[in-house]
């Protein structure tokens, strides 16, 4: 069934229906890279803030253009503002990226399951992000650092194509300065101005300082990157069942009704976007199903 054929309720208070986007105000807009921005949104007066779990996403509506699924990239402890990092990839994301402070963006959500942080309790945790995979992992990192004593070692590997493609550059410097976290950044290629690591995220996996059999890994990024990172983690001894990936499929309704995002027996919007790697490995890198 197409999303457009789903009947909308005649009149409901703002925020009461999962179908009607609530107009949030753009408070801030910060540039991350040449094609990526981060916006901070607040709800209209009288609409309560929306608690979310790390790894969940919202459907953001650029009025008059369309909707796109965008991960929530802010701190779950501060749900009064919504933070989203958006790369301009097509018409909707371009319109969302251009939303100026003071303008409005429609919000439906939060949707999806999120990262299984409870399963990481008492274990070493590895986060591997590729490109725009860092924003969906950032809420999980905020949460783990807030409850630092619940976890063993925390290792983050963040890879991008070039230094210019790294998001949250300043915050990364702060994270790299922490002693209770190892945050490694690597790029595929760089010029002489870059003094950091060059190489693929997969190359950093063998050197992770973890107890592999007591490790949980969360991967987010292009599917090909997640596939090879999962293989590298498995080679290091991390059990397949402890590796989780966040998948992207084109979405319409966001709530498991239209079937647009179907992945085998699951709907990415409702049953994901976070899945156990062993349950979805056969679908990785098959873009449209």
């Amino acid at each position: 069934m197409a999303a457009s054929s789903i009947p909308l309720p005649a009149s409901e208070p703002l925020g009461a229906s999962p179908w009607i986007p609530v107009p949030f105000r753009v408070e801030e807009r910060a540039s991350e890279t040449a094609d990526t921005i981060t916006i901070t949104l607040t709800p209209p007066k009288g609409i309560p803030s929306r608690p979310f779990r790390p790894g969940q996403f919202n459907m953001l509506y650029a009025f008059g253009v369309g909707e796109a699924a965008i991960s929530i990239a802010g701190d779950p402890d501060r749900p009064e503002t919504l933070v989203h990092t958006i790369r301009s990839a097509g018409p909707v994301s371009a319109a969302l990226s251009g939303a100026a402070p003071g303008s409005t963006v429609g919000v439906r959500g939060p949707y999806g399951t999120g990262w299984p942080l409870a399963s990481a309790s008492g274990k070493d945790v590895v986060l591997v992000a590729g490109g725009l995979g860092l924003p969906p992992l950032r809420p999980a990192l905020y949460e783990m650092l807030r409850h630092r004593d619940r976890y063993g070692r925390i290792e983050v590997i963040y890879g991008a194509r070039t230094p210019k493609d790294l998001v949250y550059y300043r915050q990364i410097q702060e994270w790299r300065g922490r002693s209770d976290l190892r945050f490694q950044t690597t790029v595929d290629a760089a010029g002489r101005e870059w003094y950091g690591d060059v190489g693929l995220v997969t190359a950093r996996v063998p050197d992770l300082r973890i107890d592999p059999s007591h490790t949980v890994a969360f991967l987010c990024g292009p599917e090909i990157m997640m596939k090879f990172t999962a293989q590298a983690l498995a080679a290091k001894g991390v059990p397949d069942g402890s590796i989780y990936v966040s998948l992207e499929r084109n979405m319409k309704c966001g709530v498991g009704l239209c079937g647009h995002c179907q992945l085998g027996p699951d709907f990415v919007c409702r049953d994901g976007p976070v899945f156990r790697y062993q349950d979805v490995r056969r679908f990785l890198s098959v873009r449209e199903l």
């Binding site: 490109g131 194509r161 290629a189 997969t202 090909i224």
Partner: peptide
């Protein structure tokens, strides 16, 4: 390992 990494680099892991 270098050959594997070169292949992955050619595949452009961060391709859009």
């Amino acid at each position: 390992q270098r050959l594997d990494h070169t292949r992955l680099q050619l595949m452009d892991l961060h391709g859009r």
